[in-house]
Structures are given as structure tokens and as C-alpha cells.
């Protein structure tokens, strides 16, 4: 397995773990937060994000293989990043417009869904990027045989 494929699988595993952990923490906190606005809950959420995001970022950078990519791998990685950005925009569009179309403009959704949309968007973007890298590498390996 090349460094590029290892990087794709590693990032996919990291973001999946991070997303599941974030959703779990969010689900546990959501019940308490729903009871009413509470400064302690807000501070706990901010602390969690201030710890979780830097930890994931530091782990991904320390274990990142991207510094060792050659020009072809950089090109594949760039194509996958562009695709993931497109996927991110499409996902956000669907997440925002489907409720609007389904429920109508006059209805209300709970703000509790906003963090869920955020976590799912980040996960979707990384999922698309990792799959794009793995598929591009697999197609080249198939042709090269």
C-alpha cells in the first residue's frame, strides 16, 4: 500500500472516530442543554471543541504522510480535495434545502440539529476525499497490471 493510500485510510479512520466521539459527546450534552440555557454547558462545549479539534489536528499532522508525497501523489491528493469540497457544498445544500422544501418556510427545526449537520458535513468531506484517493489508486493499479 502506498503512502497516499495509507494516508487516505488513516484520515478516514481518524475522522470517523472523531465524528463518532463528537456525536456521542454531543448526544450526552444535548439532553442537559435542552433543559435550558446554562453557561456551564456552553463552557463545557467550548472546552470540548477547544480540546477535540486541536487534538485531531495535531494527530493528523504528526501522522501525516503528505510531506512524503511525490508529484503524482500530490496531484491525486489535490483532485481528491477538490472533489471533497464539491461534496461538502452539495451536502450542505441538501442539509439546508431539504428541510426547507419538506417542511416549508414557516416551520421551525430545533437548533440541536445544527451541530449534527456540522459534524456530518466534516465527516462527509473527508469520506469523499479518502474514497477519491483510494479509487484513483485502485484504477491505476488495475491498469498497470
Amino acid at each position: 500500500m502506498s503512502k497516499l493510500q495509507k494516508s487516505a485510510w488513516f484520515n478516514l479512520g481518524l475522522i470517523t472516530t472523531g465524528s463518532l466521539f463528537a456525536l456521542l459527546c454531543f448526544a450526552l450534552a444535548a439532553g442537559r442543554i435542552e433543559k435550558g440555557f446554562n453557561y456551564i454547558n456552553v463552557i463545557l462545549c467550548l472546552i470540548m471543541m477547544c480540546i477535540l479539534i486541536p487534538v485531531i489536528y495535531i494527530i493528523s499532522k504528526k501522522k501525516s504522510y503528505e510531506a512524503g508525497f511525490d508529484e503524482r501523489e500530490k496531484m491525486i491528493n489535490q483532485r481528491a480535495t477538490n472533489l471533497s469540497l464539491s461534496g461538502l457544498i452539495i451536502f450542505l445544500y441538501l442539509a439546508c434545502f431539504i428541510p426547507f422544501i419538506a417542511l416549508g418556510g414557516g416551520n421551525i427545526i430545533k437548533v440541536i440539529y445544527l451541530p449534527v449537520i456540522f459534524i456530518c458535513t466534516v465527516f462527509t468531506a473527508q469520506l469523499i476525499k479518502s474514497i477519491a484517493v483510494i479509487v484513483q489508486c485502485a484504477l491505476e493499479e488495475e491498469d498497470g497490471q
Binding site: 502506498s2 511525490d70 508529484e71 503524482r72 501523489e73 489508486c137 491505476e140 493499479e141 498497470g144
Partner: peptide
């Protein structure tokens, strides 16, 4: 030349056009 074996495979197969320095 400082690239991966997969890159050489892709160049030989005509699937990837190397940069001028490469």
C-alpha cells in the same frame, strides 16, 4: 529519481505525464 514505484508504473503505462524536472 525520487518518486514512488507507482509513479514509474503510471508513467510507463502512459497514464501520467511527468513534470519537466522529473
Amino acid at each position: 529519481v525520487g518518486v514512488t514505484r507507482q509513479t514509474i508504473i503510471a508513467i510507463e503505462a502512459g497514464k501520467y505525464a511527468p513534470s519537466l524536472p522529473l
